[in-house]
């Protein structure tokens, strides 16, 4: 991954930048999903745009996929290096005394999110690829809303969805604020920024959970 990633500071920087990028993507994804609660037409229109716009598909989507893969591979590499750096472990380690559970367990919250992405790809991305490229079906700009909400008919899926977004919340509660520190931003505005990142980390996942429950309840 290039010479610069050889240094711990650069790895930290890269982890933060890819994380910030994913946060930005999450916000965009949330905004579009949220329209499904307000108006099926707007949701269809935006989904059609995202699914067929050249810039989004050919430029932004590969960047996104690279960002996701980079962030999780790097996360695993860092975890392995960090475990090695301890050597012999403590018999008594009181992590709660000096740090948050979230900050110490990013690898686990991250692993849950990764598993969720697997389900998400299976639910939405693979069918989309198969629709467009394997079966070459004609484009129907009104199909997205129906295709989306049927996924929220099964209770088990909704539960998995909710659990995953709780882990995303935990991941963001540490990760979002932490990425600013990593890129060197720590000054008199940091306190305020931290408040914002904490609010974001709670509100956005709760929003996704709300959307899932909304469609589940509507289809009961």
């Amino acid at each position: 991954m290039g010479g610069i990633i050889k240094s711990s500071v650069a790895r930290k920087f890269a982890m933060a930048l890819s994380g910030l990028f994913l946060v930005f993507f999450l916000l965009q994804h949330f905004t579009i999903n949220f329209t499904s609660v307000i108006s099926p037409d707007i949701f269809n229109e935006l989904s059609h745009f995202m699914g067929n716009n050249f810039v989004v598909q050919a430029l932004l989507q590969p960047v996104l996929i690279f960002g996701v893969i980079f962030h999780f591979i790097m996360g695993f590499i860092l975890e392995i290096q960090n475990r090695n750096a301890r050597g012999v472990g403590y018999k008594n380690y009181n992590g709660n005394a000096n740090s948050s559970w979230m900050s110490r367990n990013m690898i686990y919250s991250g692993a849950v999110i990764l598993a969720f992405l697997g389900l998400h790809f299976y639910d939405f991305w693979f069918p989309e690829i198969s629709h467009k490229y394997i079966h070459g079906l004609p484009e129907d700009p009104t199909r997205y809303y129906e295709e989306t909400i049927v996924k929220f008919k099964d209770l088990w899926r909704v539960i998995l969805y909710v659990v995953s977004f709780i882990f995303l919340m935990l991941h963001l509660l540490h990760g979002f604020a932490s990425s600013f520190q990593s890129v060197g931003f720590n000054n008199k505005y940091s306190k305020g920024l931290q408040g914002f990142t904490k609010a974001f980390a709670i509100i956005i996942p709760l929003g996704f959970i709300f959307i899932a429950l909304f469609h589940y309840i509507n289809q009961l």
Binding site: S7, N82, S100, S103
Partner: peptide, 17 residues
């Protein structure tokens, strides 16, 4: 930083401990 890495210390993940 190079020396710190060579000594085998871990990567910072901002736990603040």
């Amino acid at each position: 930083v190079r020396q710190m890495d060579e000594e085998g210390f871990g990567n910072c993940s901002n736990t603040g401990a």
